[in-house]
């Protein structure tokens, strides 16, 4: 396969038929994992008093700002990963392990009993 490069993190082969490559699919899943982690981190930092996102809808309070920022980070991460990985074959193992870790951390950070440990 001509033009194959390895960056140590993911093996990238240029695949002409984007339907055959897994890059865009993994970009969507890793992007979602980054979004989950970002939301969790924002919540945790808010609870720790280290970072506060202003409310974008006052009747809902701070949750409106925190979730909106999390969604924006998710969409940006997805867009960047999609543009970098679409049409490419990406090594799945490391991406999946990273996604798993980010999702678990994101969920743990939004779990109220964890805030009590801060």
């Amino acid at each position: 396969m001509a033009g194959t490069t390895t960056d140590g993190e993911a093996t990238r082969d240029t695949v002409p038929d984007s339907m055959l490559s897994n890059g865009a699919a993994l970009a969507a899943l890793l992007g979602a994992a980054i979004g989950a982690f970002a939301l969790g981190l924002i919540v945790l930092l808010n609870e720790a008093g280290a970072f506060s996102v202003p409310a974008i809808y006052t009747p809902s309070g701070g949750v409106s700002g925190r979730t909106t920022l999390g969604v924006v980070i998710w969409l940006i991460a997805w867009l960047i990963l999609h543009n970098r990985w679409k049409g490419r074959e990406i090594q799945t193992g490391r991406v999946q392990r990273m996604s798993l870790a980010l999702i678990v951390l994101g969920i743990v950070c939004t779990f109220p009993p964890v805030w009590g440990l801060l």
């Binding site: 490559s21 865009a24 989950a36 949750v63 999702i103 969920i107």
Partner: peptide, 25 residues
């Protein structure tokens, strides 16, 4: 307040994969 947003984000990623990359899935 916040945990369900993670579910919505993950479901959107899965919806994208299952519609745009069905053969790969």
């Amino acid at each position: 307040e916040q945990m369900p947003w993670i579910a919505a984000i993950l479901a959107t990623g899965m919806a994208f994969v299952s519609t745009r990359h069905r053969s790969r899935l």
